[in-house]
Design a protein around this nucleic acid. Structure first.
Lengths: 116, 116
DNA sequence: CCTATATATGAATATGTGTTCACATAATGA
DNA sequence: TCATTATGTGAACACATATTCATATATAGG
């Protein structure tokens, strides 16, 4: 006969407690969304270049080696997640980083990748 | 007539220098892959639960509220990126965290999300 | 050996997402 | 006002990926 409870590693009450204390579905999804932004090489390139210089869309487009439209779309995403800010000057739009955490996140990620 | 050079924010030589110093395509893609792993709420849940307890697949499946097969697939991904390790005991497999950077990455991400 | 149990895996499907194309919008100068 | 330039945006497409279903593998006990 099969056991009524699937718990093997921990006791049912312990399991309930852990589940009860876990982050809300909403918080969890927000966190995933946040990481997802960094999970694209084009966006990482944009962030890298912006970490060196304030840049207009055309220059970013040249540096990243991708169409201006693609860069615009990605900048929209980065803007939405408050990772970049912009400044308009006539018809030109200058973008720059808008987050102090970005550098530390990168540092840790690089460290992790070094170890392998 | 249109300018031969698109550079607006910085000078062409400066631009070339920045581009030359930028990370390799391969390194950039590796970094994106790394972040991508965290960009899924199911994987985040698994990591969260494992950060509290070593757990077998069945228990993880119950905690996460997803089919055993789905959890197995995600564990494979996490294993591949060296974020979890496992230990076999008979027919049961116990998973646990395999990375000290995970906690710090989470801390920074949460901090970032708090600010908004 | 045969059965039962825990986990892994391949195929199929549905959904998400990045890029391109074409075009819209906005601002400048003639 | 018209043309030009920089940027933004919607639709379409191609591709990636998460989940499910069915089934395979592996281990332990009878």
């Amino acid at each position: 006969m099969s056991n009524e409870c699937l718990c093997k590693s921990i006791s049912p009450p312990e399991m309930q407690k852990i589940k009860a204390d876990s982050p809300s579905e909403a918080a969890n999804i927000r966190l995933a969304e946040f990481f997802k932004v960094f999970g694209d090489s084009t966006r990482l390139k944009i962030l890298y270049f912006l970490s060196h210089h304030e840049l207009c869309v055309a220059d970013l487009s040249t540096l990243v080696g991708m169409q201006q439209s693609a860069v615009s779309h990605q900048l929209k995403t980065l803007k939405l997640h408050r990772l970049v800010k912009y400044r308009k000057e006539g018809v030109t739009v200058y973008y720059s980083l808008d987050d102090t955490h970005i550098e530390s996140i990168f540092a840790i990620a690089r460290e992790h990748l070094m170890e392998q």
